[in-house]
Design a protein around this nucleic acid. Structure first.
Lengths: 223, 223
DNA sequence: CCCATTCGCATACAGTGTTCGCGAACCATG
DNA sequence: CATGGTTCGCGAACACTGTATGCGAATGGG
């Protein structure tokens, strides 16, 4: 009778207590999907392709996952297990910066992660562990709980922004973008842009602003 | 013979100099797509639906746009025309904060914009005007040109993060999220989260941290 | 007037997420 | 050991999607 499936996948049991046993596990499916996304990008992760990698039929995946988006959630949360979470040192700024640096590394490993983190933020078991760690680091900090949550979201979000930005600069899209910028500069109606393009070609690139921006943004939310 | 279409839509002429005249304009198509996205979300913007709104066939849209993603680019850039760009006041922090506040308002008007800005940053004619204005505000600022570009990207990106966050808090997804959080808290293995949930229900929500975070992040990139 | 060129669009193709239904596998119970 | 109730695997189908192709209609310069 009463169906009422649990709305979040993490609250549903992975295996039913009775009936035929599942031949695969969520972790197995997630790993295949992550590997595929790492290799060919997020839009290559279709139910049929993931299924064929696992050697099963596409419809079988729906025994493990209610929808494709849930599979993506599994992928996102699985990357949160790649963090190394040392005990708090007492300097919360340093500890959170360490976390942000790790996030940057992880997102570089998984090019699809920034899109995921920004467009579909998810808290699974591993994300929960990460949140617990952040709260532990901020245990003695006298800020509203809501602000601490905001800080938690800001670390991954801001890092995702940075990684995406530095990837867009090395992309093939950068060529098109700069081509249009040069076109605009040549038109002459935007003097500041013209000047900026002239200055950019001569200068070397400046240092990495990641650490500074992250720390300052964090001190912004945490007061 | 030599085809070699311009890679960026903004560099292609909207109307061919010879031959039959187009019955619609890019602006007309863009407006229809934006209105549809405002009403039903980004994934409702399919070529067929936009075409049917305009009363044309789906394939006709490809005379105006090379691909769906280009249509999305048109939509994104069109929202950049909603900014009001007053002359620089001399206080660049105040001027950029004004811009960020406008971005926030615009992104609240168009719920699909944050996703777009973060996942597919685009610079069209209106975006160029915005960039020119930012560079004008920062004209006397002694920072690397690359840093100013980074600051420009940060304003929209960070604002998108904020808007998306505040929308996720009012969403139906918030119910599911907090349900899972309560589940974790009840399990007892994450004491910080348990404590945070207990504190959150009693407290009122704190003030809006948007202005502070934006300003501090900007001073982070601009030194 | 003619003709090169562009526009509108019906049709088709490959691919997508998801649902349905059925046979096979499993475990607890009789 | 047999019998149910339950779950699993999955072939087939449905409603979509973005996009390519080809052809008739419109257009304006020579």
């Amino acid at each position: 009778m009463a169906e009422q499936q649990e709305p979040v996948i993490w609250m549903r049991p992975e295996q039913a207590p009775v009936g035929r046993r599942a031949e695969r596990s969520r972790a197995e499916i997630t790993a295949a999907a992550v590997e595929l996304a790492d290799r060919e990008g997020l839009e290559a992760v279709s139910m049929r392709r993931v299924a064929s990698i696992l050697g099963t039929g596409a419809a079988s995946l729906y025994r493990y996952v209610a929808t494709r988006d849930e599979l993506l959630d599994l992928m996102t949360d699985s990357t949160a297990s790649e963090y190394h979470l040392p005990a708090p040192s007492g300097d919360w700024q340093a500890d959170l910066l360490t976390l942000a640096r790790q996030a940057r590394q992880i997102m570089r490993r998984h090019p699809w992660l920034p899109t995921m983190v920004m467009g579909r933020p998810t808290l699974g078991p591993h994300g929960i562990d990460l949140l617990e760690h952040v709260l532990d680091v901020l245990a003695d900090h006298p800020a509203d709980p809501a602000c601490k949550l905001e800080a938690f979201a800001l670390i991954s979000g801001l890092t995702a922004l940075f990684v995406q930005n530095e990837r867009a600069a090395t992309d093939t899209s950068a060529t098109r973008r700069s081509a249009y910028l040069r076109h605009v500069a040549a038109a002459g109606s935007h003097p500041r842009i013209t000047a900026l393009l002239a200055a950019c070609t001569s200068d070397g690139n400046p240092g990495d602003r990641f650490d500074v921006v992250v720390v300052r943004a964090l001190t912004g939310v945490l007061g």
